[in-house]
Design a binder for these strands. Structure first.
Lengths: 341, 341
DNA sequence: ACTGGCACTCTATTAGCGGGAGTGCCAGAG
DNA sequence: CTCTGGCACTCCCGCTAATAGAGTGCCAGT
């Protein structure tokens, strides 16, 4: 059985009211608050159908109805017109972001901005290394057998690593290393570098040089692909406490735990498609600790490319249209900002 | 009136029991659990005195007693023998920290370690810039009018900033700038640099050079002293939920809010004295949001110098002896680690 | 100076009892 | 076929009252 227009309208009304009041909504209250043009009894029949189809449920017999994850899903997919941001919000974004001096600054401002606008927990992923290109590699001698390797990417990220050399290296050697490495790797996408690094080693004729280069290469590979591939910023944890402890079925515990795991967060805001805002509701997150949470996320980057993700996390009972609009707007803004550099 | 030994013993017993059970402790239970050698009635008299002096209080008439901030203070100052770490804990520290590859890594591991060992919220401050020295300054051309300034300190911190130049600079200019800047600033403590930077500008004869240098200098000053002077890492927020919502009088809200403010956190673990572990109990933090929280903190650094602070935050009802021991041990360990570089 | 006894206070728990909101179903009207 | 009003039923929530229990303060006695 498919749902006719009125039933959808009823579902929308239920979602909207429930999101606002945080209380199960009954048929009487519904017709009072929304001009549905039918009687409570009719609405009750519709509700019975909606419940049968799994879009809403009753906490107890003879209580009002509450949307299920499936109900929110339908609401988001078919009943939501994204509201444009208010001028005030647009201005807030401007004001907040203007004057950011470097990438760290941009990310931190963004995450706070998101948390503030949506009044929820915000997550911003730093531009992913694997999707960036090498702009410059710098080698700085720290001691005779130690070098500091600094990598700067086109997205503005700066990564550093200490390199322990097998034997003493002279200034001239450092020079040479720096030149070779940059010649080979500058401008390359990080994802493409591993074979190039290997080639760097192979091209060394002098056996001593070769050892040195091999040592550098191994650290290089680690830095480029394996370690700290991703970094994250988080803000707005305090927003979890809004609405008492009612959301998140009693304890914040599991949610806070999940938020401490980088791996989990990356899963939440990773794998995004260009120019779309993704919504994951409750179970769809496939993470036990976040059964009662929803995540709205979006990729960002210059133009239509994606260099990283950002998003917000809140109770399944959240203002989806507003949140989606905000996340989308912020993602776009950050993308444009990055494009300017 | 001063407190005799038995009264102090009673206070200690109250604190220990309350910390363990989280429930007001009565006279009967006290004599049962601790061999005080006197009757409940006697203990009651002692309690009356302790209450009068402000060390304990009754949540309601005819309930057990609960320590006040003052009571904890006395407990920490006079009744605590710091327990040495268990071998298991020592091993945990070893195992956790071994293989840290750079400063970021060290800080992140440390903060997680602290959170895990104390089962509380942990904060670690990155080595403070103002207490570090410049090891090397690097200038990397990004475009004709843009340079990336990278500063490496002796504590391993790496700070970067984009410098917008007034006009195009050539490779030769960059060379010259790099040399001058490093000659003047390498090895200097950051706190001492501002006048030196000024001198750098004054020493430029060529007016064009001077403009360029002035531009670099202003960014340099910002990087060196003003901005992002301090960085922090945080972990273990989920531990706030242990003990139900009983600690922190109902809501985590204010605590979570406070934890999001870098300024507040810095105040909590700042201004430390060498080789001591500081305990701030409840109101002593002088932050409204943290009325029911205590902070145990310690400075760390190579030898007896301090380059940064670290600490943990938990309910006033916490295991002080254990926490103090752990914080101290971790601080020392991190200090030694830093000394090795 | 300490102890046992005793009366008192206050809390937390439990049970019982409407009130009320909301439902499902049904028969009747359009 | 769809919608509506009516009605009986269910269950939650909040209120009150009663009870048990823990703990206290005080006092008289050792």
């Amino acid at each position: 059985m498919s749902l006719d227009d009125r039933k959808l309208e009823v579902l929308r009304a239920i979602v909207e009211d429930y999101v606002e009041t945080q209380e199960p909504v009954g048929s009487k209250a519904l017709v009072d608050r929304h001009k549905l043009g039918v009687s409570p009894a009719t609405v009750r029949n519709d509700m019975a159908v909606l419940e049968e189809e799994g879009y809403i449920r009753q906490p107890h017999t003879s209580a009002g109805r509450v949307p299920t994850d499936l109900g929110y899903r339908l609401f988001v997919d078919r009943l939501t017109r994204i509201k444009p941001l208010s001028p005030a919000e647009r201005r807030a974004i401007e004001r907040f972001m203007v004057g950011a001096v470097d990438l760290d600054d941009v990310v931190h401002r963004t995450v706070r901005l998101l948390a503030q606008l949506t009044r929820q927990v915000a997550v911003v992923q730093y531009p992913s290394l694997s999707r960036s290109s090498v702009r410059h590699l710098e080698l700085v001698p720290i001691s005779t057998t130690r070098l500091m390797l600094v990598m700067i990417t086109d997205t503005g990220r700066v990564e550093q690593r200490l390199v322990e050399m097998p034997g003493p290296v002279h200034d001239g050697d450092v020079w040479d290393l720096r030149r070779r490495v940059n010649e080979k790797l500058s401008g390359q996408r990080l994802a493409d570098t591993p074979p190039l690094v290997q080639r760097l080693v192979d091209e060394c004729d002098d056996p001593e040089r070769r050892v040195t280069m091999a040592c550098l290469a191994s650290v290089l590979l680690e830095t480029l692909v394996e370690r700290s591939e991703e970094r994250l910023a988080l803000a707005g944890t305090a927003n979890l406490t809004r609405g008492g402890v009612l959301d998140f079925q009693g304890t914040l515990r599991p949610v806070l735990e999940a938020l401490e795991e980088e791996v989990i967060l990356l899963k939440l805001i990773g794998d995004l498609e260009p120019r779309t805002t993704r919504v994951r509701i409750g179970d769809e997150n496939e993470i036990d600790n976040l059964r009662s949470a929803s995540v709205v996320s979006s990729g960002y980057g210059p133009g239509t490319t994606i260099v990283g993700g950002l998003g917000v996390l809140g109770p399944t009972r959240m203002d989806y249209p507003g949140t989606i609009a905000t996340v989308r707007a912020v993602a776009r803004y950050v993308g444009d900002l990055l494009a300017q550099n």
